[in-house]
Design a protein around this nucleic acid. Structure first.
Length: 654
DNA sequence: ACGGATACAACT
DNA sequence: TAGTTGTAT
């Protein structure tokens, strides 16, 4: 399952920053009396004192562990403070921790590429920042090194001689270091500064690892905790890895790691070195084999993604033993609560981040009253996500019923649900030029509520998604999103001007490729055709002249919104008020947007665009329209060798 | 009566 | 694709 990535040959500086017992720190900030005390965060305390999900370092000294029960923790550490996770809608509510997590990201994303790896962890690619520092103020010339940096742990640095901080300082500044190490030194200093900043601005401490790739950075970020950082010079990698227990490696903490141990007798990463890449591939498949071979040598090409927000939202709850849900009504009532929370969360994601989730998925765990049967899994089900709490609840219940149907098959036995969860995924940024559409849909100062557009659940789930097409004159948004309707939004970028802008001319000049040039030229020609003079988009005419099929075209300005928003009831002239209060004005709603002037957006029903019409269009545009309707698939080359299942059954040697 | 609630990636 | 499985915290 893990896959090796091609690695850049240029040395990178990667950091992994990890909060120390994060939830505890959040609670300690809320209640400073807890600072320095043995403390743990528990969720639900009615059964055995609740389950621990974070433990302070003071409490760890007593042997308190994550995954212990509150009662057990009290046994080994009677003085422990147990703080409960907030509860909303009868379930754990992690929002305080989520927002604390975004505080960090906000600070940590200032020095380079930043990837939110979890609620309390980020990866940073500090290569550029480190290079810059090396040019402007190389540590070797610095008379004073940032103090926190001198507290770093440098892997492979002899720790028994003299003052530790002095030797770290010496390492960081040593003039005879190779280029890679110098970059790491700069990285260490930058990370130290960031960590201090985090502490100053959030009161949270964190630990970090600094290395040439993600794997190594992550591996050591937790090595010296709390509130410390560790650097991995490449010279230290081999020694560090040889003795490292295989299961400590990321991705090898589970079955794959066990298989390595039990089937191949690999106890440490060093033991892996004796296996040829081909051998590993025979056992675990091409991808995993190569990956294993590389990580044993400290090689990992995985890039730090530039992503500050989560890729999905989910919420769920377990119903252990006697709490299991045994009828539709109780499932519905829990599902409703879960969906309510999910709806709130995607709604605020939409409002704050202008992102839309496309897919709703339901997961459940179930068992049959008839326990003799093999433990069949409750299938997960998904469908296009429609915004609005009511819709989500409705759809989730349908998904559940469908799942239950599959689960039960023809049997008519009793069932019980031991866990339920709903999640929203396939989240897309709404292109900036489109924000005005949402602006229109929502009333002034109200929350966005595309849910109020009346649409039924589309039957074909493959038609889900939002795509943007943009050339110099048009921005097109296809929205096959159920809640927004299957729509095509077309916004001329600049209506007056059909001549290429100066920057575009420049681009064209640089373009040596004849094909490209032709393409651009063609595009300009079409721009003229598609964009007309008096503020009307002639693609409308164009399409409607070609075929009468396009019947749902309306200029958004004059669109009367029959359901303006959740706050306004269905008084008929509310829509008019709304309209005049909030005219569709791109400049107002999107001042920093790339689009100029007084563009207006036109809306089509995607399904109303007849394929025959599309065929009449010039090939360039045709291709693009096909792209709108169904985005071009990035062909994923299937490279599957022997199968993963080989590690469930020890591979047979030939 | 499973550590619970989330999240992510790769595979089929 | 949708659904499954594994992994991590």
């Amino acid at each position: 399952m893990p896959v090796a990535r091609p690695e850049p040959q240029e040395p990178r500086v990667i950091a992994h920053v990890d909060m120390d017992c994060f939830y505890v720190q959040v609670e300690q900030r809320r209640n400073p009396a807890l600072r320095g005390q043995p403390t743990a965060v528990v969720q639900y305390n009615d059964w055995k004192g609740g389950g621990l999900i974070a433990v302070s370092y003071e409490a760890r000294k007593f042997g308190v562990k994550r995954s212990m029960r509150g009662d057990e923790a009290k046994m080994v550490c009677p003085s422990i403070n147990l703080v409960q996770v907030p509860v909303a809608r009868d379930k754990a509510d992690l929002n305080v921790y989520r927002s604390a997590g975004s505080e960090l990201v906000a600070i940590l994303s200032t020095k380079g590429k930043c990837e939110r790896a979890s609620i309390d962890e980020v990866y940073l690619d500090l290569t550029d920042a480190a290079k810059e520092m090396l040019l402007e103020s190389p540590p070797e010339l610095l008379e004073l090194i940032f103090e926190e940096a001198t507290k770093s742990n440098i892997l492979g640095l002899p720790s028994d001689i003299g003052n530790r901080e002095d030797s770290v300082r010496a390492w960081l500044c040593r003039a005879d270091a190779d280029y890679q190490d110098k970059l790491l030194s700069c990285g260490a200093i930058i990370v130290a500064q960031l960590r201090v900043k985090v502490l100053e601005e959030t009161e949270f401490t964190c630990s970090a690892g600094i290395a040439h790739n993600k794997m190594l950075a992550k591996l050591v970020s937790g090595m010296h905790k709390p509130a410390q950082q560790t650097v991995v010079p490449s010279s230290a990698v081999q020694d560090f890895l040889v003795s490292l227990p295989i299961k400590k490696m990321k991705q090898l903490g589970g079955k794959l790691g066990s298989s390595l141990q039990d089937d191949l007798g690999v106890k440490t990463v060093g033991d892996l070195l004796s296996f040829a890449e081909e051998k590993l591939q025979e056992y675990y498949g091409v991808n995993t084999g190569t990956w294993l071979w590389k990580i044993a040598r400290g090689i990992s090409g995985e890039e730090v993604e530039d992503r500050l927000l989560p890729k999905s939202h989910g919420c769920g709850k377990t119903f252990p033993g006697p709490k299991a849900l045994r009828n539709n009504a109780s499932v519905k009532s829990w599902l409703d609560r879960l969906c309510e929370e999910l709806s709130e969360r995607i709604q605020s994601d939409l409002n704050q981040n202008k992102r839309i989730a496309q897919t709703l998925t339901l997961h459940a765990r179930a068992s049959k009253g008839n326990e003799c049967d093999s433990i069949k899994k409750f299938p997960s089900k998904s469908c296009p996500l429609r915004y609005g709490t009511g819709k989500i609840q409705e759809d989730a219940m349908k998904l559940f019923e469908s799942g239950l149907h599959d689960f039960l098959g023809s049997q008519n036995t009793k069932w019980s649900i031991t866990s339920l969860s709903v999640s929203a995924s396939k989240i897309f940024d709404i292109p900036s030029g489109t924000s005005s559409i949402l602006r229109y849909i929502k009333g002034p100062n109200s929350t966005v509520s595309p849910a109020n557009l009346d649409c039924s659940l589309p039957q074909d789930p493959s038609l889900g998604g939002i795509n943007q097409f943009s050339n110099s004159s048009l921005t097109v948004l296809t929205c096959k999103h159920a809640s927004l309707g299957n729509k095509l939004y077309i916004t001329p970028n600049h209506e007056e001007q059909c001549e290429p802008s100066s920057s575009e001319k420049e681009d064209r000049g640089k373009n040596s490729n004849l094909d490209k040039q032709h393409q651009v030229k063609e595009e300009k020609r079409m721009s003229k055709k598609l964009t007309d003079v008096k503020g009307t988009c002639s693609i409308l005419k164009f399409l409607s002249q070609s075929s009468p099929v396009v019947n749902e075209k309306r200029k958004l300005d004059s669109l009367t919104c029959s359901h303006p928003g959740p706050e306004s009831s269905s008084e008929p002239n509310k829509a008019e008020e709304h309209k005049s209060a909030q005219p569709f004005d791109r400049n107002k709603s999107n001042p920093s947007g790339s689009n100029s002037a007084s563009s207006s957006t036109w809306m089509f029903n995607v399904e109303d665009i007849d394929p025959a019409v599309v065929e009449e269009l010039p090939p360039e545009i045709q291709r693009e329209i096909h792209g709108w309707i169904r985005p071009p698939k990035h062909s994923s080359s299937k490279t599957r060798g022997s199968t993963i299942s080989s590690y469930f059954q020890p591979a047979k040697r030939s």
